[in-house]
Simulated scan of single mutants.
Amino acid sequence: MAPSRNRRPGFSRRAQYGLFLGYVIAAAGAIVAVILLALATLNPPAFIAFRATVAEITTPISSGLAGFGRGVASIPASIGDHFAVNQKNAQLRKEIADNRALLLRARMLSYDNRRLKALLHLRERNADPVVTARLVSSSASSTRRFAVLNAGAWQGVREGQPVRGPEGLIGRILETGPNTARVLLLTDPESIVPVRRTRDGLPALAAGRGDGMIDIRSVSLSNVPFEPGDVFVTSGTGGIYSPNIPVARIVRRSRDTALARSFAQPDTLDFALVQQTFMPVLPPTPAAAAPGAAAKP
């Protein structure tokens, strides 16, 4: 069946107006094209000026549309970058956590290294060390303060020998076994160590309290002022401890008797150095033969 020659878009006025407007625009476009073609042929300078004017008017619109297009086109890339940044952030957080663990381990190793180097330097300076051993345990809850050393008589450890660490004096040997020794700590109530103050040489006694602290008592003067930060070292009196071993530091201002904290804390130590006594007791000499005694044949 042949198509109808009637091209009217039905009875809809909107469709009719749209069709009419399309015809008008097409006709206007054809007229403008003919005018521009004639202008370009007959008067090229005028056509160039007209074209420049149109370009000046349309360039901002074109720029805006181009920017809008680039913005729309960049949306997928921005979404991808967002997820990539989140993933990278998670990786960096994991690296920071791993590095924090490594940093803590490095700090622990550095701390142990400093302490072991100090102990080695102490052993090198000391002319007569007995043995370097490990403190395997110490009492923390009892009123008595002892520690156990994993070296004994077979390693040359004897009763009365001083025990010290990198930070200062720990105590002295109280009992010995074949491979173990019991150390009387400075903070034990039975421990008394002759000391002197470093800034003026004031003689004093460091007595344990049984609670982890030490009492410093003056032995020569009364009403002696003690200031926080005063440092006391062994004086050498008594012949057990060699002089100038750090013992304790005053923590509270007082007179006659002051509260102090020992430099060496056994609960944080692992190695200790056993030394010979400062003035070892000489073995008894054999009795001389009585004069005039007759020799046996």
Rank of each mutant, 00 (worst) to 15 (best):
F263T: 05
S254Q: 14
V72F: 11
P189F: 06
G238T: 06
A55E: 08
V274Q: 05
G236C: 04
A46L: 14
L37W: 14
S110D: 15
M279I: 14
L65T: 07
V136L: 03
A101W: 03
G292W: 13
G29T: 12
V195D: 04
G22V: 11
A27R: 05
L120D: 15
E159V: 12
Y17R: 11
E95I: 09
A118F: 08
R261V: 12
A140H: 08
L39D: 07
V163G: 04
R144V: 01
A46T: 12
S12Q: 11
E167H: 07
G22C: 11
V34I: 09
L120T: 15
R253D: 08
S142A: 13
N86E: 13
E227C: 01
A258D: 09
A101D: 09
P246M: 04
T234Y: 01
P266Q: 07
A204P: 00
Y241V: 00
V231F: 01
A84V: 02
L135C: 06
A38G: 00
P60Y: 02
V148G: 02
A77V: 08
V24D: 02
G29Y: 06
P280T: 00
T257D: 08
I216M: 11
T285H: 10
S63Q: 09
G236A: 02
G229N: 10
A33N: 05
F278V: 01
Q155R: 03
I216V: 15
A294P: 05
A287K: 15
A77Q: 14
A248F: 03
R134W: 01
D200Y: 07
V148C: 00
F232S: 02
I173Y: 10
L37Q: 08
R107C: 06
Q87R: 13
L282F: 09
S137V: 03
G239P: 07
L119N: 03
P246Y: 04
F146V: 06
F68K: 05
A49W: 09
A101K: 15
R253G: 12
A272G: 09
S110L: 14
G238E: 06
M1C: 06
G208Y: 07
G22P: 01
S4N: 08
F278L: 00
L273T: 08
I79F: 12
